[in-house]
Design a protein around this nucleic acid. Structure first.
Length: 333
DNA sequence: AAGTGTACCAACCGCACGTCG
DNA sequence: GCGACGTGCGGTTGGTACACT
């Protein structure tokens, strides 16, 4: 037997509220309060409405000091910042914005803010690509190539080992900024874990077999970029980067063993056909994918990407990365 | 002018949780 | 401890307005 309905569905009015209904409800609540019982309220007033409907109407529309529309830039920032950190907890987000309702914020996010941010981010990404292209062109004047990703890594140029180092402002540089940011402000495992939990399935909170997630498992590219663990990809300008390739292969092999459902087998070879000419861009894309792409991909209801493997195998250009968003709003947290 | 697509938003629905007897 | 009930929340739907062809 299912649960009894909260009201007699056949005798309640649905749909938009009339001004008369609004007036009745508002007048009663202003005079008597809700009485702590929304279910009984419509009967007392003589409204043919469900108690839940009355509550919603009051909270979202009739209650004093409600603001509608006209979100400010500051409110946008707060919403984005909180969304990135706590997800779609609209009631909590609304609590930080006086006069705003959770419903309003939810609608605003889904219909406008998300699109606005994606547009902004894609522009940033294009700038980053152009920047990398310029750097790539510069460094390819040398025959040998070394990749040292961290902005904290000291320049180690030798006559035989010129290297490519992402700079602040490049996409890889932005990623490093965010790695730093996340290390400083939140536990990095929790951050990723939350993303994975959002993916559901084997990473869900409900899964009793869930395994601990370690930095080494989640962040092979970060390993490459930490000062303690500098790995350099040596190659000529026309052959695949074997060091990077083997690092990735090892990584995906590890992930495949622990999370076979998440990583397709053919990921092992995903970097094999890259030339060094293509490598910086590919590295940059995949760094971003690994660390920050999940969030925005999961936000997209149109996305068919449900697993880590889907993400890594997807065309990088189709992904939208929120790292710049995180940067933009990090100072508000 | 008519048809179609898109954006926006109010309202609904179902589930989870807390409280109370 | 258990079930009934009320409340709160987040996802989703459906109606309306507007833009575009």
């Amino acid at each position: 037997m299912g649960r009894a309905p909260c009201c007699d569905k056949a005798n309640v009015k649905k749909g938009p509220w009339s001004p008369e209904e609004d007036t009745k409800l508002k007048a009663y609540i202003e005079q008597h309060g809700t009485g702590g019982n929304w279910i009984a309220l419509p009967q007392k007033i003589g409204l043919k409405r469900c108690g839940k409907s009355c509550r919603l109407r009051w909270l979202n529309y009739l209650r004093p000091n409600i603001k509608h529309g006209g979100f400010t830039e500051e409110e946008d920032n707060i919403i984005c910042s909180l969304y990135i950190n706590i997800g779609s907890r609209w009631s909590i987000i609304a609590a930080q914005l006086p006069g705003r309702t959770d419903n309003d914020i939810k609608n605003y996010w889904n219909t406008r803010l998300k699109k606005k941010l994606l547009g902004k981010h894609q522009r940033k990404q294009q700038e980053a690509r152009r920047s990398i292209k310029r750097q790539s062109h510069h460094h390819h004047q040398d025959n040998n190539f070394m990749f040292a990703g961290s902005k904290t890594v000291q320049t180690q140029t030798t006559s035989n080992s010129p290297y490519y180092k992402p700079e602040v402002g490049s996409a890889a540089g932005l990623v490093m900024n965010n790695i730093q940011y996340h290390h400083n402000s939140v536990d990095i495992d929790d951050f990723i874990r939350n993303l994975l939990i959002k993916l559901g399935g084997r990473f869900s909170n409900d899964n009793p077999h869930q395994q601990p997630i370690t930095n080494s498992l989640i962040y092979p590219p970060v390993q490459m970029f930490t000062p303690e663990n500098q790995l350099y990809a040596h190659s000529s300008s026309s052959t695949p980067c074997s060091t990077w390739n083997s690092t990735c292969t090892n990584y995906y092999s590890t992930v495949s063993q622990q999370y076979p459902e998440a990583v397709p087998d053919h990921n092992d070879h995903m970097f094999e056909n890259l030339t060094v000419d293509e490598l910086p861009q590919q590295l940059d894309d995949d760094l971003e994918s690994c660390l920050f792409g999940m969030e925005m991909v999961m936000m997209s209801t149109e996305s068919s990407i449900n697993t880590w493997g889907d993400m890594m195998m997807s065309n990088s250009n189709s992904l939208v990365y929120p790292h710049q968003i995180v940067s933009d709003y990090s100072n508000l947290i």
